[in-house]
Amino acid sequence: MSLEAREISFAYDRSHPLLDGFSLSVAAGERVAIVASSGAGKTTLCRILAGYIAPHAGSVLVDGADLAAADPRSPRPVQLIWQHPEQAFDPRMRMGHSLAEGTGERSKEQALARACTDGLLDAFGIRSEWLSRYPHELSGGELMRFCIARALLARPRYLICDEISAMLDAVTQAEVWHALLDCVDGTGLGLVIVSHAPALLDQVATRRVPLVPA
C-alpha cells in the first residue's frame, strides 16, 4: 500500500530537464516532506503525483495500480491541494457548489450532507453562510479551508499539500494543520507535504526527501 513514483522524468524545455529519474515511495499513513530550493520542480512533482500532468518517462503507481489508467469518472485517488486557493475556485460558482463538485455523489445536497456527517465543515471551521458566497467574498485563509475540505470530501488515499499554509498567519496555520492531521489520523491517508518552513515540517512531517535538481 503506497503511492509510488518510479523513475520519473520531466522537462518543460528539452535542454533543461527538471526531473530526471526521480523515485519516491509514500506508504499509507506516512507524511513525507519534499525539500528543495526554489525552482527545483516541487510543484511540478506535485502535479505529476496527482495526475494533472503526465511524466515524460516513468510512472506513478497508487497502491500498485497505474494512476494514468484510473477511471476518469470517479474522484481521483490522489488529491492535490493547490498552492494558491484564490486561483483554485471557479469565480462564478458559489462555494457550496465548488465544494460538492469533485465528489462521487449525485447531487450537491447529498455531497454537502456528507461533508456535514463526516464532520469536515466543523473540523475546518467552515461556516454554513459561507457556502452561498462567491470566492472573492472570502479571505485566503477561508478559501484554503474549503480547498482542504474539498480534497478530503473526495475520499482520497493520498493527499498532496503544496505550500498550503504559506499565506496564513501563525494561528490560522496551526488551526488548519491540526484539523487536517486530526482528519488524517487513523485513516491511513498518506500525505506529501511541500513547505519552505523547516519549523513547520518538524511539526507535521514524519520523513523528509530532498529533491535534487537534475
Binding site: 465543515l121 454554513s128 501563525a170 494561528v171
Partner: peptide, 24 residues
C-alpha cells in the same frame, strides 16, 4: 501570546474555542 504559541517552533498550539464552523 496565542500567536507566539501557534508558531511551529513554539509548540504549534491552537487557542481554545477558535474554530466555530458547523452545519446549518
Amino acid at each position: 501570546r496565542a500567536l507566539w504559541r501557534a508558531m511551529p517552533q513554539h509548540g504549534f498550539a491552537v487557542p481554545d474555542g477558535s474554530a466555530d464552523g458547523g452545519c446549518a
